[in-house]
């Protein structure tokens, strides 16, 4: 893959920083306001995994499908979602992407191809297969990207869905974000093999391991997998090795070893990308600071939008049940 142009690099950096800042703002507000009635639920942050969503989604078209997870803020932002209605959704407001019916795990934007997060681990995989089926059946070259974790790779839905996509050459990407833990269970305690990507070989498909904390590396493997899918050659399993830098969610305490946390902090995907941009990407420190400042402004405006938004009327709980 040729080196990305400086504009692309800026775009990738901006997206990664946006996701990081979004999660920081969401966490601050959760901690500050959780008991005051907004920012309820569990809040699963994507801190440390930004390179994966950005690496993959920055290559997608608006009409490509993304099926997300319980840890989905990064996927949404990378696919083009606006942080304002996202924060409003987290805050339970009428102006949220799902008008307050969904919350953190259920952000939907059909116009962006965002088919939603899923609170059921592994629940999204058959949906991705169905979306990919639609793409194939309607004769388009759209692709469906299914994000999931190392934990979900142990659900039966992975095997059923991947098998079907392989059998029918459906245009799907299965992106396993192996962040080393399923809630508190280490991957070594749930998976008998080192590389989850190998599971694809059992279905006669490519399974690729990539450094999930290196956005350009993720982009390179995703580009090939997307091209393969668009060409009608079926699914690829990408295993992006990464690390969740925060606890599973706000209601489960940290159980991991401090040395391990420190070790992975050294591999922070944003810091690594910054180093690359400065040393090899031809971008100046000043410019990066400028991008970070812009992102701060965007997030501050998003938070203000959420705060100023009205609460939903409880009388409309039945309103959207039926089409």
């Amino acid at each position: 893959m040729p080196n990305p142009r400086p504009d692309d690099l800026r775009h990738l950096y901006r997206l990664m920083v946006t996701i990081r800042r979004f999660e920081e703002v969401a966490t601050e507000r959760y901690l500050a306001a959780g008991r005051a009635g907004q920012f309820m639920g569990a809040l699963h942050t994507y801190v440390g995994e930004e390179a994966i969503a950005v690496g993959v989604c920055s290559l997608l078209r608006e009409d490509d499908f993304v099926i997300s997870t319980h840890r989905g803020h990064g996927h949404c932002l990378a696919k083009g979602a606006d942080p304002g209605p996202m924060l409003a959704e987290l805050a339970g407001r009428e102006t949220g992407y799902s008008r307050g019916y969904g919350g953190s795990m259920h952000i939907f934007a059909p116009e962006l191809g965002l088919l939603g997060g899923n609170g059921i681990v592994g629940g999204g995989m058959p949906l991705a297969a169905g979306a990919a089926f639609t793409a194939q059946y309607t004769g388009t070259d759209r692709v469906a990207v299914c994000f999931f974790g190392d934990g979900a790779s142990k659900q039966g839905t992975f095997h059923e869905s991947f098998n079907l996509c392989a059998l029918w050459d459906l245009p799907a990407l299965f992106v396993c974000e192996n962040n080393c833990y399923a809630a508190t269970t280490p991957v070594k305690d749930s998976c008998p093999i080192v590389d989850i990507a190998e599971m694809a070989h059992g279905y006669g498909c490519p399974g690729v391991v990539v450094d999930g904390n290196n956005v350009l590396a993720v982009r390179a493997v995703a580009e090939e997998a997307i091209a393969r899918a668009r060409a009608g050659r079926g699914p690829t399993l990408i295993e992006a090795k990464t690390y969740r830098m925060k606890p599973h969610c706000m209601v489960i305490r940290e159980t991991r070893d401090q040395c391990e946390l420190d070790e992975w902090a050294e591999k922070d995907p944003i810091q690594r990308f910054e180093a690359y941009l400065l040393e090899e990407g031809g971008l100046a420190a000043e410019e990066l600071r400028g991008i970070r400042d812009e992102v701060d402004t965007v997030l501050a405006a998003a938070a203000a939008f959420a705060d100023a938004s009205p609460w939903p009327d409880p009388a409309r709980v039945m309103e959207v049940l039926w089409a």
Binding site: P126, A131, F133, E160, N163
Partner: peptide, 21 residues
């Protein structure tokens, strides 16, 4: 004709409906 994959059959139906079928 699908394999014996009931989770995937039902889930694919939903995914296909989301896609417009």
């Amino acid at each position: 004709d699908t394999p014996i994959s009931e989770m995937a059959i039902a889930g694919m139906a939903l995914g296909a409906a989301l896609g417009g079928l």
